[in-house]
Design a binder for these strands. Structure first.
Length: 579
RNA sequence: GUCCUCGUAGCUCAGCUGGAUAGAGCAUCUGCCUUCUAAGCAGAGGGUCGCAAGUUCGAAUCUUGCCGAGGACGCCA
């Protein structure tokens, strides 16, 4: 294969870059090999600029003060020595536009065909251990729409990373401690009392609304496992019951976790004391009062002496309270302990997925890790912006107070897991997302998951017909690929050649939405190609009079399918053989 | 007041770690089903990339300032 000889790997743009850099070093011996030469090799938007475009002349002539003319002559001559290239053009102000040769494309195609199950994925992670914590919804009720984005984003990011050689742990932090759990148990207790005394006393202000709690209480009442006046046990019971509801919802949207970490358990192990002591030793904990925050007016604020963490020393804007004036630890204190625990379990990177309203929290957690001596662990936070639920062109307001939440279990049966997941990923995580119910129910281009699945299903139907007609297109027919010379077909191959790059950047930026957009793009190229055969019989995929071309085309579509399958697998969206 | 995120076509949004004439869907208009799935395709119109400077051969992309939207800002979790 000419590819191996030429040093071409799956990402042909990266490989081309390497080839060019080697030519530079071979021909300009005085270039310092240590210096990073930052050139780009990309597929240009316009096809007329070639298959790969590089700014090498521009960059190198400036960096090393070499004349553009000399550079381009040497580069063009040497690039063309390599049989995988067909054409190189110099364009002002210093680009080289390069075309691959036809044998290259068919060889490249052959290579990815033989690798199709893994095509695009790499071992970039080198088995690095990553902990990704997401969702961590409070165990006070089932999941609602507001939870969905973080849950799906986290799940997909984890899948993306693990498919690329990272050793990923998906973690759920259960806040089974504190005021909210007390209130939860009070609510259950209240309901059980009502059942027991056959009364219907209304809930107090603090208690949680929601029929599901009544049901939990009723189940308890019918078959009590212990005396409900045992408050500690009742709290545990309440948390467990709600976690069961949450797990059921998670299961229904295809999200799973490897680990559930209990806050209460962390406390039992004495983590909090351990961490505070460590910080105290470094003089990072002190007793004092904070400056008045800007948000408060003069009247509403009094300085109070309390236990503080010196987080401003580590890049935070202000020091932070770890112990309330009533003697309770703050949530932040507990979180320091939790993150300390996470890091000490030996991860190379900790990823947290939070709602955008927690942005202000990042610096203090970072500060605490630095103070504890973990500057080497990468700590990343990905923020998810709010999702607006839209129905019939109107935003549906949800509020915690009124208990007015649209539950996952209400909405899922209508639209299904696949559409839900796909839709939630059609935006960058830090951009607002309008979750439009009408669009989800649409069976048109407005609903991109159908568009992609439809492309897959169309190919499946072709394969079925080919089978009936006894047209074979297995590995032994790979040589027929050289028949794919039309612009339309090379266009699809070019699009397929971008796949590894898309994965790479999705991993690098931790942005799964890039995959979604790519799949839509690829599907679009396929649909266009398919429709070509409608008006021009030369482009009918199953042409009976030219079996070799037919086989080549079927192999091409097989590749389109496997890229779509690989992509949807990351998203955990199913493929459909028939629609 | 300080900090964070965002501002791209009438609407909803992409824009590949600075590249060439800024892209898609919806909506509007025009075509395409006797033949491989029309849940589709082809074409047209529609943009001072919030505004203004700066860096650069080159800026939607980087920097600064302003305008606008959303969010965060001591003992909530």
């Amino acid at each position: 294969m000419i590819l191996q000889k030429a040093g071409i790997k799956m990402n042909i743009y990266k490989s081309t870059k390497k080839i060019i850099l080697n030519i530079l070093h071979d021909n300009f011996k005085n270039l310092n090999k240590e210096i990073d030469i930052k050139i780009t090799c990309e597929q240009p938007k316009k096809q007329k600029f070639g298959d790969v475009s590089t700014n090498v002349i521009l960059v190198v002539s400036k960096m090393f003060n070499i004349e553009k003319k000399v550079l381009s002559e040497v580069l063009i001559k040497n690039i063309l020595k390599n049989k995988i290239f067909k054409k190189v053009n110099y364009v002002d102000p210093g680009f080289l536009n390069i075309n691959f040769s036809n044998p290259f494309w068919s060889d490249f195609f052959k290579k990815i065909y033989l690798n199709k199950l893994n095509y695009g994925f790499s071992n970039i992670g080198k088995n690095k251990k990553i902990n990704i914590e997401f969702l961590s919804a409070n165990p006070t009720g089932p999941l609602h729409i507001g939870h969905l984005r973080g849950a799906i984003f986290g799940d997909v990011l984890a899948k993306l990373l693990s498919k690329n050689g990272f050793n990923v742990t998906k973690e759920y932090y259960v806040n089974d401690l504190g005021v909210q759990v007390d209130n939860l148990a009070f609510t259950i207790d209240h309901h059980i009392s009502n059942f027991t005394n056959k009364k219907d006393i209304t809930l107090s202000e603090k208690m949680y609304k929601g029929e599901y709690l009544k049901k939990i209480a009723y189940d308890f009442f019918q078959n009590p496992p212990f005396d409900y006046k045992n408050f500690e046990k009742l709290k545990e019971y309440a948390v467990n019951s709600n976690m069961e509801l949450i797990k059921k919802d998670l299961d229904s949207i295809g999200v799973s976790f490897n680990k559930y970490i209990s806050e209460k358990n962390n406390h039992k192990m004495g983590l909090l004391q351990e961490v505070i002591e460590k910080l105290e030793k470094n003089n990072d904990i002190y007793f004092g009062s904070l400056e008045k925050p800007k948000s408060k007016n003069e009247l509403g604020w009094k300085p109070i002496k309390q236990l503080l963490f010196r987080s401003s020393k580590y890049g935070d804007k202000s020091d932070r309270v770890v112990k309330k004036s009533n003697g309770d630890w703050t949530y932040f204190a507990s979180d320091i302990a939790y993150h300390y625990n996470k890091v000490s379990r030996g991860y190379d990177e900790i990823i947290n997925i939070w709602g955008a309203d927690h942005a202000g929290y990042i610096d203090r957690v970072k500060a605490s890790l630095n103070a504890l001596g973990y500057q080497n662990t990468v700590f990343t936070v990905k923020l998810c912006q709010i999702v607006n639920l839209i129905d019939k062109k109107k935003v549906i307001k949800m509020s915690k107070r009124s208990g007015n939440f649209v539950l996952v279990s209400e909405i899922l049966p209508k639209i299904g897991k696949d559409v839900l997941r796909f839709f939630m990923l059609t935006r960058k995580n830090d951009a607002h997302l309008d979750f439009d119910l009408e669009k989800c129910l649409n069976e048109t281009n407005e609903n991109p998951s159908f568009y992609v699945q439809y492309a897959y299903a169309r190919i499946s139907s072709l394969k079925k017909i080919a089978k009936q007609k006894n047209i074979k297109f297995d590995e032994s027919h790979l040589p027929s690929i050289k028949k794919l010379v039309s612009n339309e077909e090379l266009n699809i191959i070019r699009e397929i050649s971008l796949w590894p790059k898309i994965i790479e950047s999705s991993v690098a930026f931790k942005e799964p939405h890039r995959i979604v957009y790519y799949l839509i793009e690829l599907s679009g190229k396929f649909h266009a190609y398919w429709s070509l055969g409608k008006s021009n019989s030369n482009f009918k995929i199953l042409s009976e009079d030219n079996s070799e071309l037919t086989q080549a085309r079927l192999l091409l579509l097989e590749m389109v399918q496997s890229v779509i399958r690989n992509g949807l697998e990351i998203l955990t969206v199913s493929v459909k053989e028939k629609m």
